[in-house]
Design a protein around this nucleic acid. Structure first.
Lengths: 116, 116
DNA sequence: CCCACTACCTTGCATAAAAAGGTAGTATGT
DNA sequence: ACATACTACCTTTTTATGCAAGGTAGTGGG
């Protein structure tokens, strides 16, 4: 079996993205009010693939944790949408995750350069 | 409940680290031959907490995927150790993950600066 | 009035990390 | 030479979570 590697690589990549998903969602929402499909396409643009079955439960969880809030808004075409925004807690959380992200980056980049 | 946030934050942080674990382990092994405890303490230094129950199964999986190989080596004090090193496939994989990491960094940093 | 489209949500499955528990070889102190 | 402590390896069980798939409902066009 020459290339069982491909599977392994893809799953590792997926894992890397997965871990950062929640952070990215908060980032996208922090920029402006958005609804689920907006978030999905923003993340797609950033090469972070997400599907509905992932997004909706995650948004609900963040809402229940008090990090997000939403309000319904009519659409010009189609059913009404849930527009999300960050709560105060959500903003505080995002700040913490920003710090975590910066630390992670420097930790890992340190490991990488130590290699060479 | 004022600070249910802490839990949520810790779990988000853990998730971020988790996703990058496999990549970090390969990075550490690529630098020199190491055994499990070496890897754990290297990662601890880099603020990436890992426990044995996570490390051993993961090393086995990477070995089974053909990314790692090991050989036994006596210790001056205590039982013999399994020293791991990257296989050719492992090195190729690491290169790919390096690319993935770079892309991820720029994607996320793009999202972040777009915020400001 | 029906069909297509969009948006929301839920259920069941697979994966994987973490917690906890277990085995065994080596050294140390008496 | 025996008991204790320590180190290293490994396995089992629990829990979390992303994803695939399936399901409901409101809106507008033909």
């Amino acid at each position: 079996m020459p290339n069982e590697n491909k599977t392994s690589l893809e799953s590792s990549r997926a894992q890397m993205r997965k871990g950062l998903l929640e952070y990215c969602i908060l980032l996208v929402i922090s920029r402006k009010k958005v609804y689920a499909s907006d978030i999905i396409s923003s993340l797609r643009t950033a090469d972070l693939l997400v599907v509905e079955g992932t997004m909706y439960p995650l948004l609900s969880r963040l809402k229940n944790d008090g990090l997000l809030d939403y309000h319904w808004q009519e659409s010009k075409s189609g059913p009404p949408r849930k527009y999300y925004e960050l709560t105060g807690q959500g903003k505080a959380m995002l700040k913490q995750l920003d710090l975590t992200w910066e630390m992670l980056q420097s930790s890992i980049n340190a490991l990488r350069t130590a290699k060479a």
